[in-house]
């Protein structure tokens, strides 16, 4: 495993730890989109259906279980925890899942490497992951106050796929791996969606101001 891949996985893991910290210690999910979190559950469930069938490494299996477990528990806290659920900005988190799920599923049926259940689900999970942050970004744009934890959470989540892009470049040129258009292009789109957020995040950090996205 190269350093970019590890950095990507670690920023991804750190983003989840940050969000769980906000939920468990602060007892708050203010500014967090339940829609996005539910999309991540769908992403992980459809991508890791091969967990019981194919073994790559201890690291891989553990990380998959962690991503599945934490994403499900985040959704549980936001929906059912009696204190946390009251901090959820339900009225502004209105993005409809189906507008993302349906096109991604149709695209996965049309563009995939092999027309098998596992392969189509895997492809679907990549397409859906690329756009799953959209409800979260819409929610941030509508929020007057973005707390540091939430801002850092979204930043780490964006940094994760950016590191994966470097990892793919490294694997292609240095480790001589094959071309993989589906993960590469969806990963590129996923990172590009964060461009605007990155710009304002870095700007607010440089000016030591509170993060605010223009409406």
């Amino acid at each position: 495993m190269n350093a970019f891949r590890l950095a990507g996985d670690m920023t991804h893991l750190l983003s989840i730890i940050l969000l769980l910290h906000k939920i468990r210690a602060m007892k708050s999910c203010a500014g967090i989109s339940l829609r996005t979190q539910e999309l991540y559950v769908i992403v992980f469930v459809t991508r890791y259906v091969d967990l019981s069938m194919k073994y790559y490494s201890f690291y891989n299996s553990i990380m998959k279980i962690v991503f599945l477990g934490t994403s499900i528990s985040i959704v549980w806290y936001m929906r059912y925890h009696k204190v946390v659920k009251q901090t959820y900005n339900k009225d502004v988190d209105t993005f409809r899942h189906i507008f993302l799920i349906l096109p991604c599923f149709v695209l996965a049926l049309l563009i995939n490497r092999a027309f098998t259940v596992i392969e189509v689900l895997w492809t679907f999970s990549l397409y859906l992951e690329a756009v799953a942050i959209l409800p979260q970004l819409v929610l941030l744009q509508r929020s007057r106050n973005i707390d540091n934890l939430t801002g850092n959470y979204v930043f780490l989540l964006g940094a994760y796929r950016a590191f994966y892009l470097l990892n793919w470049i490294y694997r292609f040129f240095i480790e001589n791996h094959q071309v993989r258009w589906i993960p590469w292009l969806s990963g590129l789109l996923q990172t590009a969606i964060y461009a605007d957020f990155f710009y304002y995040y870095i700007k607010s950090w440089k000016n030591r101001e509170k993060l605010k996205l223009p409406a």
Binding site: D50, K54, N60, H177, R180
Partner: peptide, 10 residues
């Protein structure tokens, strides 16, 4: 030849 890409990523 190039290495076959396995789905060993997350």
């Amino acid at each position: 030849g190039r290495a076959v890409s396995r789905k060993d990523e997350l």
